[in-house]
Design a binder for these strands. Structure first.
Lengths: 170, 170
DNA sequence: AAACAACATACTGTTTTAGTAGGTTATGTC
DNA sequence: GACATAACCTACTAAAACAGTATGTTGTTT
């Protein structure tokens, strides 16, 4: 039945991990979003601007590329571009892409998940997990760039003045 | 000035970490919330129900206690209770409590955070970080227990029938 | 041909996670 | 008072994840 399938799916679902790894990935993608009109951005540039190790960035971008979040151009002048418009890329996608490591530890493997209140809290957790995921799915790179948070607008506007005045990297 | 203070505060702020550790803590707190009327709940009970190592639970509850999220009763028949009503305890508090380890790595220590577009993406990240935190601050244990998610209501109702029929543990 | 930059793989030190082990202290019950 | 219970505390450990280093190769532009 649909209910059981549903239950199993969410029992096996893994946690939405949120660490510095995800921060690096989102930060790098934000860097891309901000410099998108300027053609491909090299990882060397991002590495320098965001102070993230180049090789580490390469590892992260391998995953981002596998998940069709960025496209690459090789050779001199090459680099990475967003694969889609920044309003079509969610924060959730980025974090998921970079944390791919399917280990469904919750309650799979043990058949005792399906009976009664043993697993009730698991369901509740899965609810939360899904809410978090849905929340982050609703936040696009674009919405981040275009100040959602009123409190820091003042700070950011002065910053954006320099940043947006036509491809500062050239 | 206020703006600079503001900037520094959020530059130094750490990421909201979300791992299995947090899942365990939230799960355990949910277990408490569900059995709250039954008096103190021993960690041994939670350990058995949620399949979490007893000693690990003890470590987590040490943090939860330090942060006034639970209160304890020693001796036989003792255990832990929620320190407040379940609608006054947010998921964010629980996760924060259990992940306490102040390491402000973002851009503190390096003075270069304050100039221009170098740190623009950091601001954007901090925005996101704060949004996540605010989101999880808005979700209480109580709201989790009382089905926010319509899709799983059907599943949970049958479960809650057993669970809520007066302190199953006695 | 040379330089550039993506792409790939293997290795390393550190931190976090999750759990184990072995206690001490407080408090009910017999 | 003896005893069981369960909180409380500290130190240790194996495994995983994190973050970074090193060393390439492949493709592309100049």
């Amino acid at each position: 039945m649909a209910a059981l399938e549903f239950l199993i799916r969410y029992c096996e679902k893994n946690i939405m991990r949120l660490t510095t790894r995800g921060r690096y990935a989102v930060t790098a993608m934000l860097d891309l979003a901000l410099n998108n009109e300027c053609g491909p951005i090299s990882l060397a540039d991002i590495s320098q601007r965001q102070e993230i190790s180049l090789s580490y960035l390469e590892q992260l971008f391998a995953k981002l590329r596998q998940n069709n979040l960025v496209s690459s151009v090789r050779g001199p002048g090459g680099g990475y571009c967003l694969a889609r418009a920044s309003d079509a890329i969610s924060v959730a996608e980025i974090i998921d892409a970079v944390n791919e490591s399917i280990d469904a530890t919750s309650c799979s493997g043990k058949g005792n998940c399906h009976n009664g209140d043993i697993c009730l809290t698991h369901h509740l957790w899965d609810d939360l997990s899904r809410q978090i995921h849905r929340f982050l799915s609703g936040i696009s790179l674009d919405s981040l760039v275009h100040q959602q948070d009123v409190q820091v607008v003042m700070l950011r506007q002065s910053d954006q003045a320099d940043a947006n005045s036509g491809c500062a990297k050239v």
